[in-house]
Write a protein that binds this DNA or RNA. Structure first.
Lengths: 238, 238
DNA sequence: AACTCATTGTGACGCCGGTCACAAGCCCAC
DNA sequence: GTGGGCTTGTGACCGGCGTCACAATGAGTT
């Protein structure tokens, strides 16, 4: 087993080379070296908060290992989940670029390995490195894309089954493991699924059992099985 | 009256120097020159479609004059408005950076003046111009911010009055003219307001007259008057 | 003025889904 | 094992708002 300390940036890149939006991968090795020199790598347990809504941005974090939940909370405790960040992606880029306070909270869903780069160091790096700036823009563009899709889902869909179907299909394609067949891990509680699609926990439970009854999809433990992809797609594109 | 042809990039910058997120303003004049050489400026009437969802990205557009509606449409014709783009902002940046098809449709709300830069020209410019890349990242970061706020509004709010209050207040601060007092222009139909906050036209009409009854805000013609800002804020932060 | 077309205003109806309340599993610690 | 904490599962209720249908206003044309 690898020790946490051995998981530096470059290694994380080796692990996640499949993901094209990946921030640092593909940059010349010489440039990565510069970042290596200024990064701090550390581990966090499950449930740790990497940063919170409203805090001033301190820097960016590269998620080397684990999954992180990005969410926004309302005054009375309601929450929406913006997205689940997977290993290889960058956290806090918006804050670092804009200087605005974080508008979301990042919380680890499982033990994570994170490399931190201070904002000034990162900005300096960007300024000396045009290619990296473009890469940053690409990452932001991708994040924007995801956010827009969520707006579409929340704003256009007008039934929960529709949104849930969309969510499951999306999870199946962009999900955790690339081996996206009909069977995959979905390590989220019904509550969290509800926060992703903007509905209540009870309704998620009910709609899931409705799906199970109709042989569309079933969630057994943390294993999601998509039984009738076509029917789900019909629901989703309603 | 100015002729359309006289409204080039640099002039547009003069007009909109208040907006800090403004893309090209602040770049060294020498760099702007390079863009001047490859841009095409043209005018569009109200209701013109600059690009549509699903099209391959051809380039970016700088809105010199006018307002543009960015929206997404579902299969059966429902629509969400992502945002209203104002003079000085950039359109199609995400497409240009990512190469992905446009995920939204851009339609002019009034006669507009637009400078177009082909994607290849723009990318070349970015590569030769680190500062501009960072600027692009900043613009994307700002767009992302707006999209996230919309997710928050759609996902967290759980009544239409709440969302409408938030929308009106937001319009008052980020609205068209900087002279944001209690009285401002709101040149959108109830239908469009509904598409911005994810509700039906009828409900917008009803909620607006509810606001009028409670002396919170009134929309007379295209003039919005905020009568009781505090009460609206209470509604919005519910 | 008369006509057309877009927008706004209102009533009635019905249903989806939020909320509350509680039961039933599950997992883990001790 | 037994207990306490999270999840998940269900029933009952009811209110907001989407939808349909149509009237009323306004704005632009001829």
């Amino acid at each position: 087993m690898k020790t946490p300390q051995s998981l530096g940036l470059t290694e994380s890149c080796l692990e996640c080379k499949l993901r094209s939006a990946n921030f640092f991968c593909g940059l010349p090795a010489a440039n990565l070296k510069a970042l290596e020199a200024v990064k701090y790598t550390s581990g966090y347990p499950e449930g740790a908060v990497l940063f919170m809504e409203g805090q001033a941005p301190r820097g960016i974090m590269v998620l080397c290992k684990g999954r992180v939940k990005l969410s926004m909370t309302s005054a009375e405790g309601r929450a929406v989940i913006l997205r689940i960040v997977k290993a290889g992606e960058v956290l806090g880029l918006h804050g670092a670029i804009s200087g605005e306070p974080y508008q979301s909270t990042a919380e680890t869903l499982e033990p994570c390995q994170v490399s931190f780069i201070r904002r000034e160091d990162f900005l300096t790096f960007l300024r000396q490195n045009g290619e990296a700036s473009i890469r940053a823009a690409q990452q932001l563009s991708s994040d924007y894309h995801v956010a827009c899709e969520q707006v579409r889902s929340l704003g256009l869909a007008h039934s929960v089954p529709e949104k849930l179907a969309r969510f499951l299909l999306d999870w199946a394609t962009n999900g955790q493991e690339p081996k996206s067949g009909t069977r995959m891990k979905l390590t989220l509680t019904h509550e969290e699924i509800g926060q992703m699609i903007g509905t209540s926990r009870e309704t998620v439970t009910r709609t899931l059992s409705e799906f199970k009854g109709k042989q569309l999809a079933a969630l057994r433990g943390s294993t999601l099985i998509i039984q009738n992809k076509e029917a789900l797609e019909n629901l989703a594109n309603e």
